[in-house]
Design a protein around this nucleic acid. Structure first.
Lengths: 226, 226
DNA sequence: TTATTATTTAAACAAATGTTTAAATTTGTA
DNA sequence: TACAAATTTAAACATTTGTTTAAATAATAA
């Protein structure tokens, strides 16, 4: 076993335990002994590899950030050309919107590994630590900007207006609510875990909802001069 | 000074400090010494009045729960009759929806005291502690149920379907996102604090948005048999 | 093979933490 | 006014916590 391999094993084991435990108990509610016990690494290795507990927390967010960027890379490969266009068509803009939403829904509702990221992201969203920048700058900001622009283009509004920023925030919140208010949603649905049928319904209702609002806003615009 | 008055002063001072500090640092990140120092009460008074730190946390949520119920009481006084009707009209249902949303926006964006509640609510939403029931059972559940039904009635769908539950979750998330993703929103808006002008724009964009989606869904329904 | 570097370990440290305890003080009641 | 009850205080306690330390072990390079 090479040095690099072994180092990554211990280091990575701590990161995986970190994502799980920090997600469940928060930074302050997770002790170095919990982390050590969870992955079997000696407690001194936290400061050896990461400097201190906060360093491990940041490493967890770095890891999640990279993985999410990987996760959405597929989406952005096919959409990058449209996004970079000076003037995408409304049809093109709608493609971007749909793809981003689809990716988010899949990430939030379907795949198993991302579920462990979601809890930590949800924590950071509602109560940012100093490490929030890691997630914000690499992922959230980009999605905000892209959706602000694409939505405005699709509905025929000014992409640079504050109204467009507000609108995209509302738009993103529609989907983000499945992780930031997950417990409320589950209780309302009367379950501890969404069934495949429930997930299917959710995706369908989301799609109907956003198509309706986007087309409604677009139709308003075709009738009025902004 | 009577006993009851004095007791309430110390007890209440601890609760106010609790709301502030638990909101900012979380339950685990707030020490009994911080609480004691913030309001000047001796540290032993936490267990004296509340049993332990968790008891104080619960008391804070109880306080917030009562205050929010008070806050929305005005809204529910005028809407109660409609909500209790077996078959409200679509017009009536829309009145309920608009009033609830207006109340939530005011609470989340405008008034100063509720702002201190919002942080703690946001925390509980995204990462429920055992005390989440306090807020859920008294407030969130009711709003979920009422909006599920009113939205379904307005757009002509079945109020008891799972789709209606999902739809109302999306609907609530549109507004809740202003507290559960507050940092992201502020950064996107390029400010640390929303100006009055920005708040005004936000309310206007929200109203346009939800009117559009509700009327869009309603129009779909008038064209299709569900 | 030896020396160097990197990793890991077990123990220790200093501080922080939530809670308890007993005494002092204040308040309320008869 | 005296006594009882309630509240408050300061100190102490036991545990937990994050981190450090020095030695042991493993891996790498010459």
């Amino acid at each position: 076993m090479t040095k690099i391999k072994q180092q990554l094993d211990t280091r990575n084991a701590l990161i995986q335990s970190g994502i799980k435990l920090f997600g469940e108990y928060g930074l302050n509610g997770t002790s170095t002994r919990m982390l050590s016990h969870d992955c079997g690494a000696n407690i001194a290795l936290i400061s050896y590899h990461f400097g201190n507990k906060e360093g491990l927390y940041e490493a967890c967010l770095d890891y999640i950030s990279l993985r999410i960027q990987d996760y959405i890379k597929g989406t952005y490969v096919t959409l990058g050309d449209i996004i970079r266009k000076e003037k995408p068509t409304a049809h093109e803009a709608k493609q971007v919107i749909d793809s981003i939403i689809e990716t988010m829904l899949t990430m939030f509702l379907v795949h198993e590994e991302p579920k462990s990221w979601n809890v930590l992201i949800s924590r950071e969203q509602s109560n940012p630590t100093p490490a929030f920048d890691i997630i914000y700058d690499s992922i959230i900001k980009r999605i905000q900007q892209d959706l602000t622009r694409m939505i405005a283009i699709y509905i025929g509004r000014d992409p640079n207006s504050e109204e467009s920023k507000i609108r995209s925030h509302i738009f993103i919140s529609q989907v983000l609510g499945f992780i930031t208010s997950r417990e409320s949603f589950l209780r309302h649905m009367g379950t501890d875990n969404l069934s495949q049928a429930q997930i299917g319904k959710t995706r369908k209702v989301v799609k109907e909802y956003i198509d309706t609002v986007l087309n409604g806003l677009r139709a308003c615009q075709l009738k009025e001069a902004e």
